[in-house]
Nucleic acid binder design. Structure first.
Length: 354
DNA sequence: CAATCGTGGCG
DNA sequence: TCGCCAAGATT
């Protein structure tokens, strides 16, 4: 099968593929696993600096399992999808406890670990254990949707199953590790979302979409729906020494497990902030300054953040607690904070009215 | 099955 | 400025 789909891809990979990414050296299951989790819905260039810092701090599955969860989250701060970080540590603890610190070379056992689904388990099998397994990420979906002219949005189960079938049938018995990297690289470098470079593609001869000049039409885009607008008050409560109050967010939901500024009811009027602050936080509010609001865009809604800086007297009335702490701003920035909160705490003071 | 979960880059 | 979406998994 010297001219098979897989073989053409491997020949292309030998010349053009990416072989020097940070998780490509000292390759073991732990390093591959961490990279795969970080790379979920996250671009390679974004991941690289996070990966380097994370591996320096947590060089082994044992180190990760034993670390304080806030430490793990702080290394994830800014990456998004924070359930990945919490699941990562849970899985590390399970690997240490149930598998004696060694990742199982088995699809079902890998999928039993939190945060590892079908594609990630396959990636670990192929990349770390060189075992035949089939991945299906965004790149592979795009390559296969074009090559086989698969109609419909890949978010639909029906379409997804068809893509999985194509992915399985192309997976070779030899050089699976390189093949897995190859098909992702082709999607990232040649079969790109916009302006695919079909002239450089080793698969164009057999590509159905290319034959009809419709490569750009695949895969079908997600049906669009309106994004709801939500609002919130984010309160910078500051004591005379410049310390600010942070609260640990509940483990699930947006920014789960991260620290953030206290939130107040979005229905409140600006004039009601002082009283609401005293009631919900139990501290006297001496002064209120409103700042420019800004909008943070999520994948499925927009959050209008209205910051207010409140001053209070010395906070000795409230001792630090597991989920409530007074911190200087540089200390706060060292915690796991959502990106908008980091901006708010680090940014210049703005005094314009909302 | 559809909704949820972040952020930054890019056209 | 804005919509789309990226090495998906979970509920």
């Amino acid at each position: 099968m010297s001219n098979s789909f897989a073989q053409r891809l491997l020949n292309w990979y030998d010349r053009h593929g990416r072989k020097a990414l940070p998780w490509h050296h000292d390759r073991n299951a732990y390093r591959v696993w961490v990279s795969e989790i970080m790379l979920q819905q996250t671009q390679v260039a974004t991941v690289i600096p996070y990966y380097e810092a994370f591996m320096a701090r947590f060089p082994s599955v044992e180190a990760l399992a034993a670390a304080p969860v806030d430490d793990v989250l702080s290394h994830w701060s800014g990456l998004g999808y924070y359930a990945r970080a919490r699941n990562l540590q849970k899985a590390a603890q399970q690997v240490v406890e149930h598998f004696d610190g060694r990742f199982p070379a088995d699809q079902a056992q890998l999928e039993s670990l939190p945060g590892i689904g079908r594609s990630t388990a396959a990636a670990i099998l192929a990349q770390a254990f060189q075992q035949r397994a089939t991945i299906l990420d965004g790149n592979v979906k795009r390559v296969l949707a074009r090559h086989h002219a698969v109609d419909g949005w890949p978010g639909q189960t029906r379409v997804l199953n068809r893509l999985w079938e194509h992915a399985e049938e192309h997976t070779p018995d030899v050089r699976v590790r390189d093949y897995t990297q190859a098909i992702m690289d082709l999607g990232a470098m040649v079969c790109t979302r916009s302006r695919p470079d079909c002239n450089s593609c080793p698969l164009s001869n057999t590509c159905t979409a290319h034959a009809t000049g419709e490569a750009a039409r695949y895969p079908a885009s997600k049906p669009k729906k309106e994004k709801p607008e939500k609002s919130t008050w984010m309160v910078i409560l500051e004591d005379p020494e410049g310390r600010v109050l942070l609260e640990k967010r509940p483990p699930s939901g947006i920014w789960g497990g991260l620290w953030s500024l206290p939130e107040l009811d979005p229905a409140l009027e600006a004039e009601e902030l002082a009283e609401a602050c005293e009631q919900s936080l139990g501290l006297p509010c001496l002064d209120v300054t409103l700042h420019n609001g800004f909008r943070h865009t999520f994948s499925h809604y927009h959050l209008n953040i209205r910051p207010a800086r409140l001053s209070t007297c010395h906070p000795a009335a409230i001792a630090d607690h597991d989920d409530r702490r007074w911190l200087y701003r540089d200390e706060a920035l060292a915690l796991g904070l959502p990106a908008p909160i980091r901006t708010l705490l680090a940014g210049p003071e703005q005094t314009a009215l909302i």
